[in-house]
Every structure is written in structure tokens, then in C-alpha cells.
Amino acid sequence: MSLAETPAVPRRRLRGRSQWKGLVYIAPAMALVIVFFLLPVLFTFWMSLHKWPLLGEPKFIGLGNYVRMLSDSRFFAALGFTAYYTVIITIAIFALAFPLAFLVERQRRFVGAYRTAIFLPVVVGLASASLLWTWFANVDNGFLNPFLAWLGVLDLKTNLFATFDSAFFVICVMVVWKVAGFTMIILLTGLQAIPTELGEAARIDGANRWKRFVFVTLPLMRKTMALSLILSVTGSILAFDQFYIMTAGGPQNRMISVVYYIFNQSFVSFNLGYGAALSLALLAILVLISIVQLWLLRVGEDQP
């Protein structure tokens, strides 16, 4: 009230001062983002144009690193493995998370306890979970061998980490155990947003359970599913911890993911320039996926 009555000049000065103050409040955040994020991103481009050893002077080689990348069969092997892992693990996570979301959807007795129990592995680290399951599945004194032998599906002396398929299986079980609760909660929010009247109406129209799921529930959950799909896909493409900890790259180096390969090139072989070029390739792939994500989410909005 009194502010409106004051003359124009002090008011402009006041706005000028508050503008300056606002910038002061966000300054620490901006400084961190610039130094530890923006600068590294720009620096990645610069580095990728150099042969950059750990010690000694970097040498400008133009697009040399990118040319090298195109004929790097191990990089393409890493891409192929990462794609394979992403597809398998995403299917596995959804195959478990969807039924679980239905299980804990309605407010029933103990539903909170079940939700918490299923979600609990999400809060421990991927490194901890990887170590836990490495011990679990080791042939000398693990839990899985005696347990599976008792079930009669595995020999007591089979080393699960010895072959690609069985090691890959153990890693997938670990990741599903660790992540399914998260996907379940995301799907649950989507399920609960569906008005119950719609399901009722379909039931009265004679639609059975399966038809209601396919024609009512699934279309209405499109946006939620797109979201959890993207979170799962991006997370899997960036996978590193589980392969490094559980199999150290796997039997015959067949479990080197893209991030693992960048790590090896940058911090084991110290080809830092080449590592930067590989990082940019990874970034390009992820940006492409982000575009697909936005497209999927928009499609979800068009047909609510």
C-alpha cells in the first residue's frame, strides 16, 4: 500500500537493489554449476581434439580421436553389450515391478509394510548391493549355491561367475532386486491416478480383468510408463558399478559397458583425450534418448 504511494524514483532503485540481491543468493549455486559442471562439459570438447596423456603436454590432433573411435572394435563391443544389457534388464525390471505395483495398489492390511520391504533395496548403494550379491553368489561360501542345490536346480560346485550367461544372470537378479521397488513406486503413482469409475464402467460393460488392463489401465498409464521406462533405460546405459565390482569386466572381457570402457581408456590406459571423445559419443546417445523421452511424454499428453 505505502509502496504504491512512494514516488517512482526510489521504487526503481529498490527494484535495482533487489535484482542485485537475488543474484547474490543464487551465486554459490551458480559458481558450483559453472566450475564443476559447465566448465567440464566445455572442456570435454577441447580435450577430445587432443592426444592428452596424464603427464606431458597435450597435442592437438583435430578429429583424430573420432576417427580412431570409428575403427575401435572394442568400443563397438561395449556399445553392443550395453544395449543388450539395457534391453534385458529393462524387460526384467518391468516384468517384476508391474505385478508388484498391482499387488500393493489398494489400501489393505499390511500394504505399507509390503511396500516398504520391497522398496528397501533402493536406498542402499549399487556398490553395496553388488558386493552383497558377489558374496551371495560366490562358489566357496556363498548362499546361492547351497540354496539352489537344495532346490535341485544347481550343482553345489558350479561357479556362477565362470560363464558369461550365468554371471550375467546373477547381475540381472541383483539389479532387479535393487531397482524393482523404485519402478514399482513410480508405476504405483500412475495406477493411483486412474479414476476408479473408469474401471467400474468397463466392468459393467462386461470387460474382464485382462481387457480392463489392456484397454483401460495401460493407455491411461502411458505417461508414467514412459517416465519409468526412460529412467530405467538411462540408468542401464550408464551402468558401471555392478560390472566393475561383480565380474571385473566379466569372463573374456565380455562385460565391459560403455562407461566401463571410458573408465578404462581414461584412467587405466590414461588416454584422456580419447576418453573425452568417447564421453561425447555417450553424451550424444543420451541426448538422442532424451529427445525420444520428450517425444514419448508429449505423445502421452496428446492422448490423456
Binding site: F37, V41, T44, S266, L282
Partner: peptide, 28 residues
């Protein structure tokens, strides 16, 4: 507060989510 480039700076902070830190580890 209101200040210059407020929305652009906010988007810049949020947009860092689009770039995973795994891809800037080498320069970091």
C-alpha cells in the same frame, strides 16, 4: 527475487540433469 536471466539460469541448473556426470568425469 527478480533479476536478469532468472529463468535462463534456473533452467541451466536443472538442465545439468540431462548430462550424466559419467560423461564429464575425464575433464573433471
Amino acid at each position: 527475487y527478480r533479476f536478469m536471466f532468472k529463468n535462463a539460469l534456473f533452467v541451466l541448473i536443472i538442465a545439468t540433469l540431462m548430462i550424466p556426470f559419467q560423461s564429464i568425469l575425464t575433464p573433471l
